[in-house]
Computed example of a mutant assay.
Amino acid sequence: MIPRAIKRLFHQVSIGDQSYRFMFERGPADEVVAIDCETTGLNVHTDDIVTIAAIRIRGNRILTSERFEAVVRPEADMQPEAIKVHRLRQVDVAEGPLIWKALPSFLHFVGGRPLVGYYVDFDIAMLDKYILPFIEIELPNPRIEVSKLYYERKYGDAPPNTSIDLSFAAILRDLDVPALPQHDAFNDALMTAMMYVALRDMKERGIRIPRVRTYDVFDPTGG
């Protein structure tokens, strides 16, 4: 696998549409963008995006007024399991534009800001599937994974064999983030933004998330 830094340099040279060179500019130092996508399934190669949401974060402020949302019409059929998750049927997205029409607005919205997400590599891989043929580069933005930030705050000093839970629900619970209806792209992006702000604040203040201590209890009966 080509290291991301080398790939970024290659894309700076090979970008097809020069009007998108701004993607390689870092943007405001205190801004990041939380993103989320809902898809027809979980296969990057055969499934498509149906909704995209992005929310800017400036310092410790989540700017819900500065957001990007799009419902797009997929070329792939909606998988039954995906419908159960995000509750969007084929008919619900049939009137949306194809993703190619939404990409320019999305790319101008995020610019070169770091992208924050929960298992963000999947969302970026889905987006890159369309962005690469569109402007001949993949998203060059730095990535910030909230599950990694959470792991550092809760399990970074954990002893071996500690049980680890990186689920979305566990992070919400430990950070006391309100649980909005999930698998809605905007709600998921907003909850992810709140996780990021809380975790960054904890890191700056040197605070760790407490773990429940478990002890082996000796049973003389051997049970």
Rank of each mutant, 00 (worst) to 15 (best):
D47G: 03
R21V: 02
K101R: 14
D92M: 07
K148A: 10
A193C: 06
L199A: 06
T64D: 11
G96C: 02
E152H: 12
D176K: 14
I35S: 04
K84G: 13
V13Y: 09
R26E: 14
R73Q: 11
K129R: 14
A198D: 00
L103R: 02
T46C: 08
Q182C: 04
E152Q: 13
R143T: 10
R8A: 04
F134A: 01
D157R: 12
E95Q: 13
D123P: 09
I35R: 06
E81I: 12
R213P: 06
L88S: 00
M202F: 08
R61K: 13
P80M: 08
G223D: 07
A102N: 00
A29G: 09
L9T: 02
D174L: 06
A5L: 10
L139N: 08
E75A: 09
I2M: 11
P80D: 07
T214H: 11
Q12A: 07
I144R: 11
Y118S: 01
L42D: 01
K148C: 05
I15W: 04
D48I: 04
L9D: 04
I207A: 02
V110W: 11
G117L: 08
D123S: 10
V120W: 05
D201E: 10
M195Q: 04
L115Y: 07
N161Y: 15
A76F: 11
D201G: 07
G111F: 12
E81S: 13
G223M: 06
I99M: 02
R73K: 11
P160E: 08
L127P: 00
P220R: 15
T192P: 04
L132P: 03
